[in-house]
Amino acid sequence: MAITFKNVDYFYDLGTPIATAGLKNISLTIPDNSYTAIIGHTGSGKSTLLQHLNALLKPSHGEVQIDSRVITAETNNKNLKSLRKKVGIVFQFAEHQLFEETVGKDIAFGPMNFGATQAEALEIAREMLTTVGLDEKYFDVSPFDLSGGQMRRVAIAGVLALKPDILVLDEPTAGLDPKSRQAMMDLFLELHEKRGLSIILVTHQMDDVADFAEHVFILEQGQLIKSGTPQEIFNDYQFMLDHGLGLPKATQFALKMRQQGFKVPTLPLKEAELVDLITKQLTETEQ
């Protein structure tokens, strides 16, 4: 299931004196079964873009095509529900959406909204709880008794329970400790590789972009300023630094090596690639 934006503009408070542009002339395609990263500063339009992915917002001009559905400014607000089942969005600080008495009921909330019976929904909830790496003993616990990181997992399970084809993640690891962060990123990769979910990840972590993404879109002030594979965008490291976006740690290290006179033919993005590069340098010096 692919998502295509064609010349999408979005204005907040359209038709009032305080109208402001959220997105300007965005055209992009997110192919089926892909892992896409969207990066940009706070206020660059990332969250606005995300809300177009399941028609929470409709473009002011232009069109968004989700699977076979075309969403324009004139699209009726009714009958968008089926889209929301296909595109699951985990918002920033998703733990703020929990409200039910028990973890199980909260995860089952989504499926029940889409017509599952209570028994079916609880069945899915149980499965999702373990998928996100929480023990089954939490099933009947109040979500408000959990730690922040656990609550985040429950919220993610609540979105996974919709069984979406596309999973959209808005800074899913913000504020988590390194171990949970790693576990969570591994979970998303597994969902992508084993269950064939498309992942759309909004992040400030360039290491995550380097490690996981297949394609990257960079937004600035509501405009798409660059797109490409991680290798392509980080090769243009001057651009990334000029726009204050940063580089993966491995790339930063390699650039310092280059400054010191080491030969760095292709810039490494991942830790493993950097290790390869250094090993090669060391063996060459020995010879």
């Binding site: 929470l56 959406q97 909204n113």
Partner: peptide
């Protein structure tokens, strides 16, 4: 929060 719940149907 409304957006998050809308996204959950």
């Amino acid at each position: 929060i409304m957006n998050a719940q809308r996204a959950r149907g």
